[in-house]
Simulated scan of single mutants.
Amino acid sequence: MQNLLKGIIESNKIYTKEGTVASYIPELGKANKEDLGVCVVTLDGKEFMAGDAEKNFTMQSMSKVIALILAILDNGKKLVFSKVGMEPTGDSFNSITSLEVKHPERPFNPMINAGAIATTALISGETDEEKIENILSFTRKITGNKFIAVNEEVYRSEKATGNRNRALAYFMKSNGLLEGDVESILDVYFKQCSIECNCRDIARIGAMLANDGVLPWSGEKVISREVSRIVKTIMVTCGMYDASGEFAVGIGIPAKSGVGGGILASVPRRMGIGVYGPSLDNKGNSIGGIKILKELSDELDLSIF
């Protein structure tokens, strides 16, 4: 496995020169577009890494997986999916038209920005600080990394430039989809997106989901098999923005990307995979990361279909 990962990094490094970093969030624009890393965590707890796998970056939309899990744990699936749908959308992840014209009663799914804001609003906690601490505590548990924290520079950059997300949130508030103070909800959302991680961290989350909610390195069950199944299914149908269908056909792995360059992937009953490559395609997905997952899927026959 180690040699395979090293070879895959070497063969796909060239693709990092394509695309662009997410400069519309100024702090993300500082990333080195040629970075590329991968980590695989198997269900017996073995870990294999290559390239820039230990380089830190922020979760961005990968954190939507964590928000969905916590929202279900805190409220039950019935309430959660009364606030957000389960259907894929062909529109971009931050589309206003999608919410206002096509699906005004609730966001299409929890993996687009509007849907993630709705699930974040459901996470328990009396204050913003309690909510983000609950998110951080759970993330530390499922990664086994007690140093998981918010990158304050990225958070401030997200907050300063997050006007599209404000528009989505205030529209949902006007339709009765959000309860509570909109700016407080958004503050938690911006912080959750700014949680710092590396490829090992996200591969461990993927391995937990692949293992039906059980942490491979400790045997602790942190979520039910049902919640794990729901999350993986939504990752397959909605996790790669409006390229989810193409990704499912070509690679066939439950996955969630983030504009920080990460992709969290989970191969049921086999492994978790974390990749990092901040050079993005026009859908907001890591170009190098997708190439890595395609080659891994082909080499190891990982497609679930």
Rank of each mutant, 00 (worst) to 15 (best):
Leu122Gln: 13
Asn109Leu: 08
Lys159Thr: 05
Lys141Asn: 02
Ala167Tyr: 12
Ile96Phe: 11
Glu129Phe: 01
Ile142Ser: 05
Arg156Leu: 02
Met111His: 06
Ile117Trp: 09
Arg166Cys: 02
Arg166Pro: 11
Lys159Val: 10
Ala169Pro: 05
Thr119Met: 15
Ala114Pro: 06
Asn175Met: 08
Ala167Asp: 13
Pro104Phe: 11
Tyr155Val: 00
Asn175Thr: 05
His103Leu: 10
Ile148His: 04
Pro107Thr: 02
Phe108Trp: 07
Phe147Trp: 07
Val150Asn: 03
Phe108Ser: 01
Arg164Phe: 09
Asn134Cys: 03
Tyr170Asp: 13
Glu129Cys: 01
Ile142Thr: 07
Asn145Cys: 02
Thr161Ala: 15
His103Thr: 13
Glu153Tyr: 01
Thr143Trp: 01
Val154Tyr: 00
Ser124Glu: 13
Lys173Ile: 09
Gly144Trp: 07
Lys102Cys: 03
Lys146Leu: 04
Leu136Met: 10
Thr97Gly: 10
Arg164Lys: 15
Lys146Asp: 10
Ala160Tyr: 08
Glu100Tyr: 04
Phe93Val: 07
Asn165Gly: 12
Ala160Val: 13
Ile96Ala: 08
Ala116Asp: 08
Thr143Ala: 08
Ser95Glu: 05
Asn145Leu: 02
Ala116Cys: 10
Lys173Tyr: 14
Ile142Gly: 01
Asn175Gly: 08
Asn145Ile: 07
Ser98Ala: 12
Asn94Arg: 02
Glu152Trp: 00
Phe147Asn: 12
Thr120Met: 15
Asp128Leu: 13
Pro107Ala: 10
Ile112Met: 03
Thr143Ile: 08
Leu177Gln: 11
Asn94Val: 10
Glu152Ile: 05
Tyr155Lys: 03
Leu136Cys: 10
Met172Leu: 09
Arg164Cys: 06
Pro104Trp: 15
Ala169Thr: 09
Ser157Met: 02
Ser174Ile: 11
Asn165Ile: 13
Phe171Tyr: 15
Ile135Leu: 12
Leu177Lys: 08
Ile117Thr: 06
Asn94Lys: 09
Thr139Gln: 04
Ala118Ile: 04
Val101His: 06
Glu158Asn: 04
Ser95Phe: 03
Gly162Trp: 14
Asn165Trp: 09
Gly144Met: 05
Gly144Cys: 07
Ile123Glu: 10
Gly176Asp: 03
